[in-house]
Design a protein around this nucleic acid. Structure first.
Lengths: 195, 195
DNA sequence: TGCCACTTGACACCGAGTGCCATATTATTA
DNA sequence: TAATAATATGGCACTCGGTGTCAAGTGGCA
């Protein structure tokens, strides 16, 4: 079922990975702002011009993983269980994401450290949050109430995540997240009348 | 009581205003990205180098007003009424801000139009929202619950503002804002036990 | 093998943002 | 009022992120 990767595609994937690896390594060592794209490209042994063929901006190479998370988040929201209330679906998707965070805590903490130190990255990160918010909004029906609930959910989620990260990923993210989401239950759009 | 402005300071204020005016006029006409700092400086009849003495970035000249709003928001939060519950104070501050939006709707809508069209500005705007969030958080006591409530408040506020802007400022911002904030009342940190 | 499509590197270019210094303008003191 | 100190300005050169273009290289395929 898996599409056979051509040599060309394998090379592209390899370059992409090399760029990400090089970038993360350099960012970790010296901080986002102090690393130049020339250096990343050189470390990955491609030309500077090629970097921009793989990533539109310097931020993108770092936010790559978050884009992947967004994609899987959307997938989850697109597959509600039978009879599941919209907000319950959202809750489940958020907690699934949280579980992934816990599983990859080391990587997550590292990325957050880099992001937190660079204002421009923080801004981009917030922009990404809006994409998550849009997904929730849609899952809740797109109404005004849905948008309000989605915005509150994202805000609350961000706070919980922050606390978790500040605890060095030692607190129980699933439990804290669950509690916080419970608080928002009353905000959820009223369920449609049963047919 | 007012500090007498020296000639030097008057000139500085004039240049500052000239830069803001020129920038807004150009942004309005051609969009944020299509305007270069050289053009703004030329329109304000100062050198490009001087632009950066007044504003650290191109974004800053546009977000200037929002910074002022943030300052007055903080002032409001710093002056609670006698016996006023923290969340009631936050509510009052938000609605006061809303009233100012209504009063200056034309200007607000214009700025929002410019910001919405430029991704980098949207990101910076979200960053500014975080500063508002921090102020609320503090007003609510800085606890974990306070942070959650603050995040939800900002999220909700943003949605309400968006709807209002999308209605061409024709909907009743005060009423909608009040309703939305009522929804959050249960999220507010429990009041401290009366002494 | 040879042709086509795609990928790469090199170069030139633009705009944002910064450091530096010489000059001009305002404030201060004699 | 004149001299001097403080500060604002302009010009220049530079770095870095990001883009368009084109010629050369490499893989896919008949």
């Amino acid at each position: 079922m898996e599409q056979e990767l051509s040599l060309r595609d394998k090379k592209k994937a390899a370059v992409r990975e090399a760029l990400i690896d090089a970038a993360l390594r350099l960012f970790r060592a010296r901080g986002f702002d102090a690393v130049t794209i020339d250096e990343i490209a050189a470390a990955a042994e491609v030309s500077r011009r090629s970097f921009f063929r793989y990533f539109p901006t310097k931020e993108a190479v770092l936010l790559e993983r978050r884009h992947e998370q967004l994609a899987s988040f959307r997938t989850l929201l697109a597959a509600p269980r039978k009879g599941e209330a919209p907000f319950a679906l959202v809750r489940r998707a958020c907690l699934a994401l949280a579980a992934e965070y816990v599983a990859r805590r080391k990587q997550i903490l590292e990325e957050r450290t880099i992001v937190a130190a660079a204002p421009s990255l923080v801004a981009r990160d917030l922009e990404l949050d809006r994409a998550f918010e849009g997904a929730i909004e849609e899952a809740l029906g797109g109404t005004r109430r849905a948008r309000i609930c989605a915005a509150a959910t994202i805000g609350v989620t961000r706070v919980v995540l922050e606390d978790w990260a500040n605890s060095g990923a030692r607190s129980d993210l699933l439990a804290l997240g669950g509690e916080a989401l419970d608080l928002l239950e009353p905000l959820a759009p009223a369920r449609r009348a049963a047919s």
